[in-house]
Simulated assay, not measured.
Amino acid sequence: MRVLLVVPPLAGHIAPLRGVASVLSARGHSVAWCGPAPEVSTLVDGPVFPAGDSAPFSLALRPPELRGFAALKYLWESYLVPLADAMAPGVASAVSSFAPDVVVADQQAMAGGLVAARCGLPWATSASTSTELADPLGSLPKIASWVDDLQAGLRARHGVLLGDLRFSPHLVLAFTTRALAGSSRLAAPVSYVGPVVPAASGEWSGSDGRPLVVVTLGTSNAAAGSRFLAESVDALAGMPEVQGLVVDPSGHLISESVGLARRIPQVAVFAHASAVVCHGGHNTVCEALSAGLPLVVAPIRDDQSMLAQQVTAAGAGVRIRFDRAKSGDIRKAVTSVLSTSDYAAGAARIRESFQAAGGAEEAATHLESLV
């Protein structure tokens, strides 16, 4: 079997498919990637077919102050749709050269679905985050109609009559579980395979014996998160009973009592932690819950609010306001998840569901069934 993985130049979206690609290769299948070059080439192993230039459509260009509909409008009008238009010729060339039996398209690489449908190829959606499965715009019909119109224009430009490009009619691989995300409201066939958490890279030996609390906002929120990170340092400095570690990509924070790092081997560090404070990014949430860690979630934008809702609904953590939380609020939330056993129990339930879901092996099996 020959599998073409069509992805955007976003590490978080590529991460679960790297594990799937490894399993497919180990089973003797041929795997190739397709996406904007050279960014994708730096994030994957194996052959890469270039598709478009992501520079004009980088999410890094989005003003950090955008929230709510303004952030959603930028995402669709200035990133998702232009990126699909730009990638489509390269994806078509990759399909012609590689001759895949099946195409896997990330939800933010809609060119994969466009070209696969046009060529009559079976294709699967890679849902690296579960947000869209819950139909977040279902209660906002005007915004949902606006998104539909943008997609209709995209399909018309490329001569495709397919429905919603975010959901393959053949298979949607959801890298989560029902225990966290709930059941899908979609008509498309959804397979909950659980997250693909990478193996710990290296060791971490910084624990001093106290409960470790890690604060991280991911790698792309440094500008928007400076205030929140500073408040987190103050919060943890006032908790001598815990060991605090704050990830500060800018390197601007200073503290004598709280650990600071520009980057951390996250999976390795989480193995020693007792709780995590984060922005609600899907990979960070899943890596924390895979370690059975309760969460304090302060969503910033995009899918993060929905992830925060899922965490609280599962009883695995609490939610605070990213833009308003002061050190006292953060300290109170951290104290709550550390001292209330129900949150640890909720995180443990999610961890068990992840372990039972199958991960990359299960995803690879579903893709084999498409051919």
Rank of each mutant, 00 (worst) to 15 (best):
A51I: 01
A144L: 03
P8N: 06
R262L: 10
I320H: 04
S97M: 03
A275C: 03
L217V: 05
L180D: 00
V102E: 05
V20G: 00
A222Y: 09
D135R: 12
S274L: 06
I300Q: 00
S250Y: 09
G153P: 08
S201A: 13
D135C: 11
R62M: 15
V269S: 08
V337A: 00
G251A: 13
A60F: 12
T42E: 04
V147N: 06
P265A: 03
V102H: 02
L165V: 08
V40K: 04
H252Q: 14
R319V: 12
S54Q: 07
L140P: 08
R27W: 04
L253W: 07
S341R: 15
R349D: 14
F69I: 08
G90W: 00
E368V: 06
L293Y: 07
L293D: 05
A364S: 01
F167Q: 03
K326G: 15
G35I: 12
G46A: 09
L59M: 14
W123Y: 06
C34K: 04
A288T: 02
E231S: 11
S97T: 05
R331W: 07
E203P: 07
P265I: 04
R210N: 08
A88T: 13
L133N: 05
G194T: 07
A360M: 07
V311C: 00
S250D: 14
L338H: 15
A288E: 02
D45F: 12
A134F: 06
V196R: 10
W204A: 04
